[in-house]
């Protein structure tokens, strides 16, 4: 990363994305959405491996849903954050549904009932994910 001051003025600014430390590269990529990341993954092997990084997908999940759900409880660590992102973007209405009722309700029983429903949803999603992986393997 150090700038080489022996070079002439034109080449002083010779930094490129790949010169950055990996955590910086991942931080930059975390501002992309999945379709943009998918395109980026197609540029080279190195970029592809960056786009599969778990910490990258965790920060993307966290930025989008971190304030409304406990991400680490989804899938109990058995789903990669990339898959979690994909599932949550499909079913994100369910997070809103649960949250709306949790805030508005004062009834402990209702709250408990709703948290049971949520656990059920999580369980279903986990099951669905395993089915997805299984069919992927069978192909």
């Amino acid at each position: 990363m150090e700038v080489n001051c022996e070079d002439s003025d034109e080449t002083v600014f010779a930094l490129s994305f790949s010169d950055f430390p990996e955590d910086v590269q991942l931080f930059i990529l975390s501002f992309l959405d999945p379709s943009e990341l998918a395109s980026f993954a197609c540029t080279s092997k190195k970029c592809f491996s960056l786009c599969r990084d778990e910490s990258l997908w965790f920060s993307m999940c966290d930025r989008r849903w971190g304030s409304c759900t406990l991400l680490k409880r989804w899938g109990q660590g058995k789903i990669s954050y990339k898959d979690l992102y994909r599932i949550l973007s499909e079913y994100e209405n369910l997070i809103g549904f649960w949250r709306r009722y949790r805030i508005n309700t004062t009834s402990v029983n209702l709250r408990m009932a709703l948290s049971c429903i949520l656990s059920g949803v999580r369980f279903i999603l986990l099951g669905q994910e395993f089915r997805l992986q299984k069919t992927d393997l069978m192909k």
């Binding site: 790949s18 998918a38 540029t43 092997k45």
Partner: peptide
Amino acid sequence: IIEVRKMFNVENDFSVVEEKAVRKEFAWA
């Protein structure tokens, strides 16, 4: 993709089969 490669000075080092696999993995996105 081609512009991004140029911008970040990276080369396409995928074989055709590998590139297909990448596209498949990210097909949902």
